[in-house]
């Protein structure tokens, strides 16, 4: 299961962010943030509300260009948002193909939908999809662009627990097949530990903590090392364990 290759580290990283600063009036939301994500690396970003997570994500996605600092991204950026944000008046397959610059967008969209297990729903309207289906369509729309960087903005937070487990497996599966660099923004410490190579904690616009997770995948949340890391991360996030460990 250990698929990480040492070679990738010597190449140019997928993301290089230097002294990224964002102010809203008096308030500094990103405070000289530095971040490096290697190609094909899966990074999870934890942080409390207001820590600057979404601001960082919007800057990386190119949705907020009014930032100071340097931002180098290798390849295209794709985003799967918290709400799937499918365009409701385009059928699912057309949503995946939207803005796709390849010779046969429809065929590419069909393949991408097959990969996320939505072959039969290609002709459906987005509003008729379940939450999990919509999120899978959103993932297909992101991955069909073969991005160098895939941004996942709490894409599983609105799903029920069982669907979330399936989605975690799907995301890992897709990541291992396509190998984009991934930045997963999440509130969920367990989710970060189950999926990521590296977990970052963002607080007051800076990365204040970094943990490598070397456990081979698939991981189980009860694993001792993960439990230890969980306590560390929760402490970093300002949550103190209550009595039991």
């Amino acid at each position: 299961m250990a698929r990480r290759t040492a070679g990738s580290v010597t190449e140019a990283p997928a993301v290089r962010v230097g002294s990224l600063t964002k102010r809203f009036g008096e308030r500094t939301v990103l405070d000289g943030l530095d971040l490096r994500i290697e190609r094909g690396e899966f990074v999870a970003l934890l942080g409390r509300s207001g820590s600057g997570k979404s601001t960082l994500l919007r800057a990386l996605a190119g949705l907020d260009r009014d930032v100071d600092g340097t931002l180098d991204i290798d390849g295209t950026v794709a985003v799967a948002f918290q709400e799937p944000r499918l365009v409701p008046w385009r059928r699912v397959r057309a949503n995946v193909a939207l803005g796709l610059d390849v010779p046969d967008p429809r065929a590419a969209a069909r393949d991408a939908l097959a990969e996320v297990g939505l072959t039969e729903r290609g002709d459906a309207w987005p509003l008729s999809l379940s939450g999990g289906e919509a999120q899978r369509a959103s993932l297909a729309r992101a991955l069909v662009r073969e991005p160098g960087l895939l941004l996942l903005d709490e894409p599983f937070s609105a799903l029920d627990a069982l669907t979330r487990i399936t989605m975690h497996r799907l995301v890992l599966d897709l990541w291992e097949r396509h190998r984009p660099a991934v930045l997963l923004v999440t509130h969920d410490v367990d989710e970060a530990l189950l999926l990521a190579d590296r977990v970052l904690v963002l607080d007051e616009g800076r990365i204040v903590h970094e943990t490598r997770v070397t456990e081979p995948r698939p991981r189980h949340r009860d694993h001792r090392e993960l439990s230890r890391l969980r306590s560390v991360l929760l402490a970093e996030l300002g949550v103190t364990p209550e009595g039991t460990t």
């Binding site: 794709a78 985003v79 944000r85 365009v87 939207l98 803005g99 610059d101």
Partner: peptide
Amino acid sequence: RKLAEVGQVLRLGRAGLIRHI
């Protein structure tokens, strides 16, 4: 506005944004 952002992320361009979104 969130759909307009999708159009931006998908690089639809201004004409594509108007046409599709």
